[in-house]
Design a binder for these strands. Structure first.
Lengths: 245, 245
DNA sequence: CGGTATTTTGAGCAGTGTCAAAGACGGTGG
DNA sequence: CCACCGTCTTTGACACTGCTCAAAATACCG
């Protein structure tokens, strides 16, 4: 459970024991439940065991912008760890099971164990990299490319955690949520989804999406997985340049 | 010099000595010099002593998206610390002086001193928060609001480091660079700059920009400084909820 | 099976993009 | 100190992507 995430970033030795010693509570929540709201102080830190979550902010005139999507296994709450009041909302996309750890305990663990500090820091830096790519997606790609890119990212991240079923998966987002992620209108997302389908890049049956032409989808989305920093495990010494993708 | 940044985030005790012990080299670079290119491995870590820098990525069809702007005193290279190959470019906006630290040394320092780990982690998390707001700016605000918001952010951040001269400062960005930061065209940026000037929110003489109506500019930019997490110093214990803005 | 949440569609419009050219500005060499 | 030049800024006309506002058609949930 919990280990997957820690290990996913950097090899740790027997301080896995310390991680296991964290007092965690399991909870099951319904879709669209809030894990954290803007303006609140995070007292606990949730880890997604199953399901999807997303991060968003609201503008003054009520528009919503989704800034990140989190899949099963990811710890969306690390972003609030050493900060006072949250600057954004974290909400579930689907029904989900989460593990909850007291924030203070987690912070203490990070500060006392260098390997864990390193793992968390790396994780946070990769998330930052994803934010940067998200900015590019929203700022400089037209809606067809942006949608393709987002789909590519989801596929690669799901695959990295073994959550992909062949080349298809259950799409957790409604078209309106895609719209809020891409900074466009749901009407327009619909047009682009249909375009991609007509072009033969994707196939849909209900909630399930299948990639029918992976190279073409990457091409359409100007997608290069480098920014996900997958497969960089780094040495266990303090230096660790790791290897390039 | 170097201390300002460390201290800026979290109170540290005598491990300031360790920071001072870092072997740093001072360099002076011309405008538009690259600190790091996408695909490269960062072997050193630069800190801006004066001047401005920015972070950007290029899309497949050559469009540029600026994802962050860094001002004097900030350490733009922390984003690459534990990662193998850089996913973006860092370039100077103006002539600047920088201090360069070997990356391995800095990483070792972080891993060996909890207070420093905490400072860096906090710093990185604040940068992530700025990315999120940037996504909102590019995705959900029209160009007038987005431009106003970016100006507000610059003003507040410059002010936080005492680099503001009254309510005016030397604008480091060309309109084309603003365009790349906001995901619009330089032509359109020009239209919006003139609009804001005509509306009496800003005044320009040459490179120098003055805020003539600060409340109105914040209003126009839908600006709320919460996401900058300024003034959160946190206790020195491992918990430290800090105080809200 | 009924009700609500999504997805589709259409028509007309607004905000931005394009392309091109003219001005300004600031720095440099003579 | 001035002319020259490259970089920025400003403008105009027009095209187009993506938005708005409905309303209909489907899909999903209990």
């Amino acid at each position: 459970l919990l280990k997957t995430l820690e290990m996913h970033v950097r090899l740790d030795d027997a301080d896995r024991a310390a991680v296991r010693a964290l007092s965690l509570r399991l909870r099951s929540l319904d879709a669209s439940a809030y894990l954290l709201r803007e303006g609140q102080v995070a007292t606990h830190c949730a880890i997604l065991l199953s399901g999807f979550a997303f991060r968003h902010k609201l503008t003054g005139d009520g528009a919503r912008q989704i800034t990140a999507i989190h899949i099963a296994g990811e710890p969306p709450d690390f972003q609030n760890l050493f900060l006072a009041v949250s600057d954004h909302n974290i909400q579930l996309l689907t029904r989900a099971e989460i593990a909850v750890v007291p924030r203070a305990e987690l912070e203490a663990l990070i500060l006392s164990r260098p390997n864990i500090a390193r793992a968390i820091l790396t994780h946070v830096l990769v998330e930052a990299s994803i934010y940067r790519e998200w900015i590019v997606n929203v700022g400089r790609r037209d809606s067809r490319a942006a949608l393709s890119h987002l789909l590519c990212e989801l596929v690669v991240r799901l695959n990295a955690r073994g959550l992909l079923d062949g080349l298809s998966f259950n799409l957790p987002l409604t078209q309106e949520q895609f719209a809020d992620a891409l900074g466009v209108t749901s009407v327009h997302v619909n047009r682009m989804v249909r375009t991609l389908e007509i072009e033969g890049l994707i196939t849909r049956n209900g909630r399930r999406l299948t990639i029918s032409n992976w190279p073409a989808l990457q091409e359409a989305g100007d997608f290069n997985a480098r920014y996900l920093h997958l497969g960089e495990v780094g040495s266990d010494g303090p230096v660790g340049t790791g290897r390039a993708a």
